[in-house]
Design a protein around this nucleic acid. Structure first.
Lengths: 301, 301
DNA sequence: TGTCTTGTTCGGCATTTCCGAACAGCGAGC
DNA sequence: GCTCGCTGTTCGGAAATGCCGAACAAGACA
């Protein structure tokens, strides 16, 4: 523990709290000492220090024995709960250190599959660990995770405006820029130059459709939408064919399409999520997603 | 913390957990060191020890910086929750150390008022702390506590067979024997000798009425009930007058009534309860109830 | 009164925490 | 490609803490 000259927080000493809790359960200092493989003098001193640290009387004499005051009882019970949680965290970490195996189902939105999920799966390096990929857009992937239909999801928290459920762990993967996508010989430098162009949008009500509408209006015009595709490859094909311009996440832009992209001053945050307390193999997959060969926060390459 | 030769549990070191959590928040080892008033070398070593203790890689290099692995992120977040609870416990204890004052409402069943509550109130010794007594039988006192109508209750957990609500702190006060109460010249030595006697019971459905019925049946007879009183002083008066025998908690037997009592091989557990997180003055009252001049577990004198 | 049990205090040794110095590696600017 | 500044790590040593055994104090029981 930190020494007095560098005490950087008042945090209670959990080994002392455990001794207090054991005193509640076992009744005597000597029994606690025996259970903890310490001497009674050590236990006595540790409890005395705990009293001085908390400035609270935790014990009182009853004949030749001691017992807990009601403050001591309350602290012992709070401590037990906290120590149980620490034990649970330790068990979770021990679980992590075993060789991962089995089948993990990974759900991701379409543009994350080959940009984030597949490379991560290829980095796993565990012969007995298999990952099944499931295409799930963000509005569907969180319910599927909660329902246990998938084990890990790649999603964006910018879309789902509901609070993250309490028992979900979220790990940030990075920022994905939103880009203007135009045909290869298109002279437009930004959205403002596209006010007379036909536009391809995502389906009504989706995050990207709403974002694109907002960006066009901020540029001073109402977009003329000629196509609405939830499959972004159709969008790219449409742009490549000179039939529309579009706004897409950078991750969605596949190099096989001959289009020009320009970054807009908007990004979306890409995250991975798992159910809290998931087994270690799931955390290994999460770790693989989180690890990237370069450390900047953009997830596009 | 315990040293290696006496390591008696694997408990995680909360100061190290706090450093890990701060690394998640602040981003660099040097920033954490500055925030914690430590040197960067100390933080680096502490985190290395945490990794070796948990046998888990918690950090990875990213250029000249480090960042948390997903196991590290999960541990940091678990740690934050646990450390927040420790902070809350410390604040609760600090609250306890202030001079208690104000009005506390103490609810207790009838026989506890003058046997447990009044003596405890007399032991308080705080000039600015006032206690208002409210008679509440066990079936009513727990709902009143939950509803905030009283602050502390004296009750028996043997009566209320529902589990104690999650946010209630219960402190045992002791055991109260159940006694057979007979008129002063009554020859009966136990329940078995009272099969032909008239009985005074508590109201139907109450704990004592059910218990008395069960004890009579175990003795091999169906009791002839001539009176049902929820006010045990009426019961005592009835017995004193030779009109009935009764089974009562020992606490309920007032010396002013000329009756004979004989302990039965049944006791009930008397407890005090408060809402979790109650302010310090309430805990002082709880402590006064819990403290007794002798240390046996019987609450009768 | 004597014996046994419980808890506490003391001095000293073993272990841990923390520091400053030196070092290694990375990234940015020229 | 080189230099400089930043980040994190390792090392040896001083300061602080944890723990022990011995001695002691107090309570309970025969």
């Amino acid at each position: 523990m930190p020494n007095k000259t560098t005490l950087h927080s008042m945090t209670l000493n959990p080994w002392r709290l455990r001794l207090l809790s054991q005193l509640d359960a076992l009744g005597t200092v000597r029994a606690v000492a025996q259970a903890a493989n310490l001497s009674a003098s050590s236990v006595s001193q540790q409890l005395a220090v705990l009293e001085s640290e908390t400035r609270t009387q935790l014990l009182e004499r009853t004949g030749r024995r001691v017992r807990l005051t009601s403050a001591g009882l309350i602290l012992a019970r709070r401590a037990r709960s906290i120590l149980d949680q620490m034990d649970a965290v330790e068990a979770e970490l021990r679980d992590l250190s075993q060789e991962p195996s089995g089948l993990i189902r990974l759900g991701g939105f379409q543009s994350s599959i080959h940009t984030l999920a597949v490379p991560a799966i290829q980095r796993l390096g565990h012969p007995h660990l298999h990952v099944e990929l499931v295409e799930l857009e963000p509005h569907a992937s969180m319910p599927a995770l909660l329902a246990g239909e998938v084990d890990v999801i790649i999603t964006t928290t910018d879309f789902v405006e509901l609070p993250v459920p309490q028992d979900i762990d979220v790990v940030p993967l990075g920022q994905d820029p939103i880009v203007l996508v135009t045909p290869p010989n298109h002279p437009a430098a930004d959205i403002g130059h596209c006010k007379d162009e036909p536009w391809a949008f995502d389906i009504p009500g989706s995050y990207m459709a709403n974002l694109a509408t907002r960006l066009c209006r901020q540029a001073g015009f109402e977009p003329r939408v000629v196509g609405r595709f939830s499959n972004y490859m159709l969008t790219l094909k449409h742009v490549e064919a000179g039939l529309a311009v579009a706004v897409l996440p950078a991750l969605a832009v596949d190099r096989r399409f001959d289009v020009v992209t320009k970054e807009l001053p908007v990004t979306r945050r890409i995250t991975a999520a798992v159910r809290r307390g998931s087994r270690a193999a799931i955390t290994v997959v999460l770790d693989a997603l989180h690890t990237r060969s370069q450390s900047d926060e953009r997830v596009t390459r």
